[in-house]
Write a protein that binds this DNA or RNA. Sequence first.
RNA 1: CAGGCCGGUCAGGUGAUCGCGGUCCGCGCAUAGGCGUUGGAUCGAGGAAAGUCCGUACACUGCAGGGCGCGACGCCGGGGAAAUCCCGGGAUGGAGUGAUCUAUCGGAUUGGGCCACAGAAACAAUGCGCCUUCAUCCCCGACCCCUCUCCCGUUGGAGGGGAAGAGGUGAGGGUAAGAGUGAAAUGGCGGUGUAAGAGACCACCGGCGUUCACAGCAAUGUGGACGGCCAGGCAACCCCCGUCGAGUGCAAGGUCAAGCAGAGACGAUGGAGCGGCCCGCUCCUAUAAGUCUCGGGUAGACUGCAUAGAUAGAUGAUCACCGGAGCGAGGCGGCAGGGAGGAAGCUUGUGCCGAGCCGAAAGGCGAAGCAUCUGCGUAAACCUGCGCGCCUUGCUUUACAAAAUGCGGCUUAUAGACCGACCUGAGGU
RNA 2: GCCCAUGUAGCUCAGUCGGUAGAGCACACCCUUGGUAAGGGUGUGGUCGUGGGUUCAAUUCCCACCAUGGGCU
Length: 116
Amino acid sequence: MQRKFRLTRSEDFKRVRRFGKSYAHPLVVLIAQTNDEAQLRVGVAAGRTVGTAVKRNRAKRLMREAMRSLIPNIAPGWDLILIARPALLSSTLTEIRETLLTLLRRAELVSPTDAT
RNA sequence: CAGGCCGGUCAGGUGAUCGCGGUCCGCGCAUAGGCGUUGGAUCGAGGAAAGUCCGUACACUGCAGGGCGCGACGCCGGGGAAAUCCCGGGAUGGAGUGAUCUAUCGGAUUGGGCCACAGAAACAAUGCGCCUUCAUCCCCGACCCCUCUCCCGUUGGAGGGGAAGAGGUGAGGGUAAGAGUGAAAUGGCGGUGUAAGAGACCACCGGCGUUCACAGCAAUGUGGACGGCCAGGCAACCCCCGUCGAGUGCAAGGUCAAGCAGAGACGAUGGAGCGGCCCGCUCCUAUAAGUCUCGGGUAGACUGCAUAGAUAGAUGAUCACCGGAGCGAGGCGGCAGGGAGGAAGCUUGUGCCGAGCCGAAAGGCGAAGCAUCUGCGUAAACCUGCGCGCCUUGCUUUACAAAAUGCGGCUUAUAGACCGACCUGAGGU
RNA sequence: GCCCAUGUAGCUCAGUCGGUAGAGCACACCCUUGGUAAGGGUGUGGUCGUGGGUUCAAUUCCCACCAUGGGCU
């Protein structure tokens, strides 16, 4: 996932988590909030409950890899945060991609007819 | 072969496709710096990157020098910038059959404190006991006498009296042998000695101090001589001695610097003076908007920062093949036992036969062969077993864990594999 | 990343110049009441976070590890 699609600044994280709307799932939690730019930005996070540093890094990599192929189908102008949950580590990449797609449809960021 | 122990090394591999971060080059847009690249090259996690327990570089702050206080360390030699570091050695213990592993390391008679319970007493001694002197007495007791009781006597029971004294009580003295308590009790054992005892004295042993010789760079070890007879434990309690140590930490610090606030200059205007008036000039007070300058400095950016070098934090995903480990199945081989009371082969004796040789003759010698006997003794088919090797195949499994200033250590976590030295056990030769 | 603090009964906490750990609430039983609550009494309940070490003896002293909480930012 290229760096221009990343959400990097700490203030942006605070803003999205404070005002955004969240969608929960056993594997990941999605938080979405509109921004002032015509760009989609995604941030990933894995808390201490996921595990050690190795497990947290792997969780974030899996979420970024799953998100990479979905980016072209998502409407621009949104800031998203993906938060990992412990069950994510025992899932395959395909399952995570399906989960993210489900969450994005619930948030109405991707049209239901788009199939990947 | 199995298990162990010590030292060292490694920490799955290859390929394809899709992707991530840095640097350099090219290109495009901008055009000093920057942004973007379906372009190319190259680099891109660990032995512990972890815990943050030590030390250090580096940075800022403080500091003439010294002292107090606080903290760390403490056998010897070497390495090292230093270290709660490493290597080797020493002493005293502990674990293991063993290879080997492991703990501790200045000072405790001469500063203070503590040693619960128990015990006379916890470092100081006479409560018990032992010995002895004096006084006193029947409270206790041996012994004697009397009375009552019982069944005649012996005996027994109760009461009273006497009593030398070795008994009781009291006072004084000597004594650390003894029991008992405890984690720990004044060195052990034997003898001499004594009223009873005692290193009071003696021999041996242990320990302490002084000293000599030898070995070793040293810690220390071995042996001898002399001395006084004996000194409890705790310094991971305070303390004493010696050595060393400023504080804070890269979120340190440095550079640039929006905004906001501050200071200064210019500044329309007001007042005063010069002047007849205007312009103009000078001075003073206050000051709106605005412009400019200044130092400090927040957000932020850059740097600090590295032949990985990020700043929501880069090494991944999918597929295929090949590996490693464990368990199971099959095949081939190897080894062991049976086969083997031993084929073959070699060998000893005897008999038969007998080429040939010697001799005048009688006769003698005699290779090979056959039969039988004695001894030595190898293999195969086949059967059985195997904690052995290789191959094929199925299932399972393939660790602990990821840099954020660098470096030297320590500690902790870790599937397994390989190399070398050694130990123990079992089997075979 | 750096710097601190705390782990003791089911819960909240005491206890330390080393000597076998307690309080309140809770729980069980008894008394009290016609019954309940309150009150009173008795009792149960502890590897003192884990593992080593010093010591005759460790919750306490020393070392390592684990967990939880907080501060700087």
